[in-house]
Design a protein around this nucleic acid. Sequence first.
DNA 1: CTGACTGCAAAATCTTTGCAAAGAC
DNA 2: GTCTTTGCAAAGATTTTGCAGTCAG
Lengths: 152, 152
Amino acid sequence: MPQNIVSYADVLNDFKKLLKVNKLKYTKQRELILEIIYNNDGHFTPEDIYNLIKKSYPEVKLGIATVYRTLTLLEESNIVSSISFGAQGKKYEFGLGEHHDHLVCLKCGGIEEFFDEIIEQRQEDIAKEHNFRMSNHIMKITGICSVCQAKE
Amino acid sequence: MPQNIVSYADVLNDFKKLLKVNKLKYTKQRELILEIIYNNDGHFTPEDIYNLIKKSYPEVKLGIATVYRTLTLLEESNIVSSISFGAQGKKYEFGLGEHHDHLVCLKCGGIEEFFDEIIEQRQEDIAKEHNFRMSNHIMKITGICSVCQAKE
DNA sequence: CTGACTGCAAAATCTTTGCAAAGAC
DNA sequence: GTCTTTGCAAAGATTTTGCAGTCAG
């Protein structure tokens, strides 16, 4: 399970600052969307987030459009990142945790995480070479894990 | 630009064989979709492919649904691969060429390709360290491309 | 107060599906 | 001939937008 290396208080504080700098307003809806993504590990579709908030905070008024608008805002601010998983729809995850990449087993579906300094460095160099302002990067290695190989 | 290391004749032949094995039919539409993807470097949305064929072969009848159906078939057969990110819609590319990774722009959805020997090597090493038998790997760097940065 | 934000519903996108006609084998 | 594929249009699914009321600063 990925660890968030930034506390929620810090995240919230930075978000508030960001809003202030851009003359945007701090609203309950925006806070809840951020909180839900921070406190729940995993990847969520906009609809997942909408439903989670509806369930956890039934007293708060919320429209799906606000979820989309807020996710766009959070993504542009590099607070969350999005991935699309083949099928339709994007999924969002908290983007300030410890970065890691994945080894995904095709047999058992298991996921191992890894972090490699050399790859991280090369990615930054490559982005620089292409005048690309990197906000995120994803690497997935697929294959057969050691456990499943042993079973063969 | 990635080089196709397989000739079109071979690709077409394999595709025909695949159709036969699965008791599917060889149609002009299917051939044209494969040909367009093979002969044009780059990444195409289903609509791009539809428009290209309409323009290059105005005498052929073709519906957008057929493009979607054929792309799904080609992807399941590992002849093309799709990538989706940022902007809406998936993009498809020929998948039997030299391996390469992608820089995906969150603003305009544009895709640049790159190949890095060091990263390729590290991926193999990492797989080995984890006793993982690698069959494939995907890497995407997301961010803002130079063109979109200039527009800011 | 003022201007930004929200929910709602409608619109815009993107993709899939049902079906009768056309085409491959 | 038989069975798959196709184009079309309609349906689904997902995301964005316009707008009047609401709310933060």
